[in-house]
Simulated assay, not measured.
Amino acid sequence: MADSVTIAELVKTARLDVYSGEEYLEERSVSTSDISRPGLELTGFFNYYPAKRIQLLGITEISYSKGLSHEELLKVMKQMCQPETPAFVISTQLDPPEELIEAAEEKRIPILGSKLTTSRVLSNMTNYLEDKLAERQSIHGVLVDVYGLGILITGDSGVGKSETALELVKRGHRLIADDRVEVYQQDEQTLMGEAPAILKHLLEIRGIGIIDVMTLFGTGAVRSRTRVSLIIHLANFSKDAKYDRLGNGTQDVKFFDVTVPKMTIPVKTGRNLAIIIEAAAMNFRAQSMGYDATETFDRNLNNLIKVNSQKDIDEKKQADETKKENQEALSESDNSKGKDDSKD
């Protein structure tokens, strides 16, 4: 987790223009993803002023400031320009008030701008800051993008995670991280994964060493980050272990507040793990779209049981009817024999 983000990084990523204070971009930083809209502050209410947040001014704030006198507006702007204030951002290509420029220059605070609407600027900055400042957890494993699904491959050291990832890359899929995967929560339902900066695009293969996947296979073979949708754990095959045979034994693993499904695949000589993981990814996508092969098997099995049960019922009914007919025929034969005996 990064403790802070410099305003220079924010300007580059959010594509902001610099109105003033360009020389202060590197020295100023922000440590929270919350953005402030200083509406009440313009009226002079400073009982609670989040000075450590980026201050975003839109059409409403700029329009209101135009109705204030020079002295009133300068006083308010000086109160808003605190030593810990990271930056001011003006949306919709509006011109910053001269009073703001004067007060910000005095406290060495940059003033930034954007042609986007206030809502878009707010969304872009919040998303970027949440990603950079989010708490991170380091996982031992390999993260690959298979058919658009982020699959985190875990397992004991030497089980074949990196070799499987290499085969997947050769088959047209993309590598995100090898050996160490940093995961963080993007929102209530999304877990993101990326590589540490020192391991980005690198893959370690025992006997060969470290290879640069982007150099060998091209830019289409790597991604910087992806959503973690499924965990596949590679385990050495054991006769005593029980493995899922029907596809209904998926477990859940919780990272932060997000749960991710996990399945275990036994590793055994002769098994093509890359193809198995591809099949697992396609099957997981099919399940997320409402199709479940296990349910189809259960339905077919139930139908077969019904057919066989009905067949047993029909056969029993036929046997009972045959028995009844035999009994009736035997009874008639006995009656006929009795009549013949009486004549004699």
Results as ranks from 00 to 15, higher is better:
T85A: 02
F88W: 03
I90R: 00
S91T: 14
S91M: 09
S91R: 04
Q93K: 12
L94C: 08
D95M: 05
P96N: 06
E98A: 08
I101K: 08
E102K: 12
E102Q: 07
A103W: 03
A103E: 11
A103R: 04
A104N: 11
A104Y: 05
E106P: 02
K107T: 10
R108P: 03
I109Q: 04
P110C: 11
P110S: 06
I111C: 10
I111N: 12
L112N: 00
L112P: 00
K115W: 09
K115Q: 10
L116N: 13
T118K: 01
S119H: 14
R120F: 06
R120D: 05
V121I: 10
V121F: 01
L122E: 08
S123F: 09
M125E: 05
T126S: 15
E130V: 09
D131Y: 14
K132E: 13
L133A: 13
L133S: 14
E135V: 15
E135C: 12
R136G: 12
Q137P: 05
Q137W: 11
Q137I: 02
Q137Y: 06
S138N: 11
S138V: 15
I139E: 06
I139H: 13
I139N: 11
I139T: 07
H140G: 12
G141N: 04
L143N: 05
L143H: 05
V144G: 00
D145H: 06
V146W: 10
G150N: 10
G150Q: 13
I151L: 12
I151R: 02
I153K: 02
D156A: 14
S157G: 11
V159C: 09
V159K: 05
K161V: 08
S162G: 03
T164H: 00
L166D: 03
L166H: 01
E167Q: 03
L168D: 03
V169S: 01
K170E: 09
G172V: 03
H173F: 02
L175G: 02
L175N: 00
A177C: 05
A177G: 00
A177P: 00
R180I: 12
R180C: 13
